[in-house]
């Protein structure tokens, strides 16, 4: 059972500010309702009886920070989650990307990597593996380690296989992994083009130009101002005519990007317009 009143708003604010100053991890612009639940959850799991105890541990015990980040960030993900999104990538985005000599894709906030492997499978089936690079980043180094290993619970494979088929996959999903007791180890050829690195969307800058950025169910944890900042980061990191894919309940509607991106399907995928088209649009609106 959750006890939302364990932590007061002001206490949370000051703790997050302290963490930002001490460690450079800035959670002050995370959605309040959500991060409060997360902080509350870590108090319960780690059996802190008061907020002061949590604070003491965080400030005095530097090694505890990593654990805090792991628990505060949500690392729940799935392969081919929202199959219709992947169907749109498969049918509308990858054929466009296929015309480039080198395809750079950024999966921002990739967590334990299930989506990275999903995109790799799409790329392989589209025959694009030889010219693709998949940059997968997350704030949390320990989930990246899991992503790098590509070993997921076998119990999930039934769901993932169903998702895969709904996304338009026609192969036998089990071709992509080797089952070993309770785990499915994904094939090495899927991993060849993956580059994993820690990247903090709050504080780190653009590090390349991409034709596709996928960031799903990460922005929901940020407040509107921080979302706007991250949208600018994505805009700076996307080539003209590049694509941006978000989670099924996320939108650029509240941001400046809205003006020069257009949604390419009923899925949450937008395409950045060329400079001339942008001017045209501004001139006539």
């Amino acid at each position: 059972m959750i006890e939302p009143d364990l932590i007061k708003d002001e206490e949370l604010e000051s703790l997050l500010t302290e963490i930002a100053e001490l460690y450079g991890y800035d959670f002050t612009q995370y959605s309040k309702a959500s991060i409060k639940r997360r902080v509350n959850r870590i108090c319960l799991i780690d059996k802190f009886t008061s907020f002061a105890e949590l604070r003491y541990q965080l400030i005095k015990q530097h090694s505890y920070l990593q654990r805090f980040i792991e628990e505060i960030t949500v690392n729940v993900t799935e392969m081919f989650r929202d199959p219709s999104f992947y169907k749109a990538l498969r049918e509308q985005v990858l054929p466009q990307l296929g015309t480039y000599p080198l395809i750079r894709i950024w999966l921002a906030g990739c967590s334990t990597g299930e989506e990275v492997y999903s995109v790799a499978i799409l790329a392989k089936e589209a025959g694009l593996m030889h010219k693709i690079l998949l940059y997968a980043t997350d704030i949390n180094p320990s989930v990246l380690e899991k992503a790098r290993n590509g070993i997921f619970p076998i119990s999930q494979m039934k769901l993932y296989s169903e998702n895969y088929i709904l996304s338009g996959g026609q192969r036998n999903f089990s071709e992509y992994y080797a089952a070993n007791y309770d785990f499915a180890r994904f094939n090495d050829d899927l991993k060849e083009k993956m580059i994993f690195a820690t990247h903090n969307l709050v504080s780190d800058r653009s590090f390349n130009e991409f034709q596709l950025i996928i960031c799903r169910n990460v922005l929901i944890y940020f407040d509107k101002d921080l979302q706007a900042k991250v949208f600018k980061l994505f805009d700076d990191s996307l080539e003209h005519l590049g694509f941006l894919g978000l989670g099924s309940k996320e939108t650029i509607r509240f941001s400046k990007l809205d003006k020069h991106y257009h949604q390419i399907s009923t899925e949450k995928i937008w395409r950045k317009q060329k400079e001339e088209q942008r001017r045209f649009k501004t001139d006539f609106t």
Partner: peptide, 23 residues
């Protein structure tokens, strides 16, 4: 509330969705 998301309310009366663990 959309399938597979928790629905939370912020103090400014906006909706926050959350894909954290099931409760």
């Amino acid at each position: 509330a959309p399938p597979d998301y928790h629905l939370l309310i912020e103090s400014d009366k906006t909706i926050s969705l959350d894909f954290s663990e099931k409760l």
